[in-house]
Nucleic acid binder design. Structure first.
Length: 363
RNA sequence: GGUGGGAUUGCGGAGCGGCCAAACGCAGCAGACUGUAAAUCUGCCCUCUACGAGUUCGGUGGUUCGAAUCCACCUCCCACCA
């Protein structure tokens, strides 16, 4: 994997290029989430039309279904799902957080009770790496524990120690030659823990560095603060990835703080729930009756397929009667919104107007 | 004309003497959603001066301590028979 910074700005934001075996990634980038080998409601072709350059997959979910035997026979995730561009796979670390009630922490990993049928299975750094090796993703995430918010200092410290151990073991595992491993900074909302985490990870030496344990319910200011603590410790010549974030405004702010990569379920999930992002970064609930006779596009300024061809009234109707096309059209729009936001950010960094863009965003 | 069955809060539809302002579904309204257990979840949905009060269950009049629930008549629907 190659990483080159092409432009810097008067903020910590930079415009870079990542080159992987499956193609280029222009950063700052937004990566649509495709947990179960599909970005819900979208075909890979549609994702390409939206100019998506990299998507996510998930170790925990793909391990359970379809299972590793199938993934192996399929020849990896790219072939299986017919997506030939870069893929990043999460390690299952987020499920340690989101499925807390279904797992038990062990020294070498986590014992999960499958959320599908309760089957017990073990996932640790070795297992996670072995699975991601089969998946063949271009960017592999180290196995970590994503801490909740709030999280006591003691809990955060203990968790960080385990995570550091797991990340070291993750690094020691053999991956496919085209794969790249990213370490994940943890430490909850504690400055010394986050600094220690970043420092130790950089020593282990990864191809890229992620900041995890954020966008789990903490105040936005806390999130920015944590990023500001961590970024100075991360090498300038490696990509930085803020896991799970964020809202449009958060993304703009985090780019300014030095983040290169983002992923978030928000555009796709909110689309399925009937909400559409509009220019100012806010959302409108299209299911609401007030759009019944609104024959305007979702956003007059939007150039997406949905906005070019359909009205709010039509989409509201599709949701009202439960037609699947409503979700598809909104997912298209919301992903376009996020991907286009990133393009605007990249362009403004290139032009040297990013600070201005940031200043005016949301107004 | 006859016999039987019905009329319940926007719609559908429970309830069949007190625990009923009345289940549940739909529609409606408001909100949530951040490395996806999410095409999901939560709350509201008769009125009001609203942790309390007041009017409701086709209409009128009864029975009863107490009725949406029982009785009588009336109105309107539905089914079958002439």
């Amino acid at each position: 994997m190659k990483f080159n910074v092409l432009h810097t700005s008067d903020t910590s934001g930079r415009r870079s290029l990542i080159e992987t075996a499956h193609g280029k990634i222009n950063t700052p980038i937004f990566m649509p989430v495709g947990t179960r080998a599909t970005v819900k409601a979208m075909t890979p072709e549609e994702l390409e039309d939206l100019n998506a350059e990299i998507i996510l997959g998930n170790t925990y979910h793909l391990y359970l279904r379809p299972g590793m035997d199938i993934m192996e026979k399929a020849g990896g995730l790219h072939k299986f799902m017919n997506w030939n561009k870069p893929i990043l796979t999460d390690s299952g670390g987020f499920q340690v957080f989101s499925l807390t009630s279904l797992r038990k922490m062990k020294p070498d990993g986590v014992e999960f009770a499958s959320h599908i049928d309760g089957t017990r299975f073990f996932l640790g750094p070795k297992e996670s790496m072995a699975i991601q090796k089969v998946l063949g993703s271009d960017i592999v995430m180290a196995f970590d524990e994503c801490t909740p918010y709030p999280c006591s200092y003691e809990q955060a410290k203990k968790s960080l120690e385990i995570t550091l151990k797991w990340e070291k073991i993750s690094r020691e595992q053999q991956l496919q030659s085209h794969q790249n491993l990213f370490g994940i900074v943890q430490g909850s909302t504690y400055k010394d823990l986050r600094e220690k985490s970043a420092e130790k990870l950089v020593k282990i030496d990864f191809e890229g560095y992620a900041i995890g344990g954020l966008s789990v319910g903490e105040p936005e200011e806390k999130m920015f603060e944590c990023i500001d603590w961590v970024v100075p410790y991360l090498p300038k010549d490696k990509p930085r990835y803020l896991m799970g974030a964020g809202t449009p405004k958060q993304i703009v702010e985090c780019v300014a703080r030095g983040i290169d990569m983002f992923d978030c379920v928000m555009p796709t999930r909110l689309a399925r729930h009937g909400s559409a992002f509009i220019s100012n970064g806010k959302t409108i609930p299209l299911k609401a009756g007030r759009y019944k006779e609104d024959f305007n596009p979702i956003d007059k300024n939007c150039q997406c397929y949905t906005c070019r061809n359909y009205s709010r009234a039509y989409i509201r109707h599709l949701f009202n009667v439960g037609e699947i096309l409503g979700m598809r059209l909104l997912t298209t729009h919301n992903l376009y919104y996020f991907l286009n936001l990133m393009k605007q950010i990249r362009d403004s960094i290139e032009k040297g107007t990013f600070s201005e863009f940031r200043e005016n965003f949301g107004k």
